[in-house]
């Protein structure tokens, strides 16, 4: 059985962030080796400023109340927890170049790589998930 979980984060909304980081931390807590490849809008999830206030899909603003009521951790908290559990974050170099971003725009501790970096990790991972 594979002990790796590979995740591609390619969307930048608040809901996307929860899907990515909940699965990632749960997998890491179950002693899996986890890597997340952040690409296109997914880079928002680890952008120093952007990930403090990720957008909620239009018409779903009322969820904000539900998040508070359910005592769900914030995205920066989940990010910290994921890193604490050893989850590897890989920022997509090509998208960063397109968006004019550098490693300094992102939270500490990320790696920057291309598609092959992720594919190399994911080749024997099960499952590989895309959000």
């Amino acid at each position: 059985m594979s002990n790796k979980v590979a995740i591609i984060a390619s969307n930048g909304g608040l809901f996307d962030a929860y899907k990515v980081f909940n699965i990632a931390t749960a997998a890491a807590a179950t002693e899996k080796e986890v890597a997340i490849f952040f690409t296109f809008e997914g880079l928002n999830l680890i952008h120093k400023q952007a990930n403090q206030a990720l957008p909620i899909p239009e018409g779903k603003e009322h969820f904000t109340e539900g998040f508070a009521k359910a005592n769900v951790p914030s995205i920066p908290q989940l990010v910290e927890m994921a890193q604490d559990l050893g989850v590897k974050f890989i920022g997509c170099q090509m998208t960063m170049d397109v968006m004019g971003l550098t490693k300094e725009d992102f939270i500490d501790g990320i790696e920057v790589g291309g598609a092959v970096t992720f594919l190399e990790f994911a080749k024997d991972a099960s499952p590989t998930l895309t959000f």
């Binding site: 909940n22 931390t25 807590a29 359910a70 005592n71 559990l85």
Partner: peptide, 14 residues
């Protein structure tokens, strides 16, 4: 108590 997924798992693991 009062924590939601994935916190119970993460805290249990720790």
């Amino acid at each position: 108590k009062g924590l939601t997924c994935p916190m119970p798992i993460v805290k249990t693991k720790k």
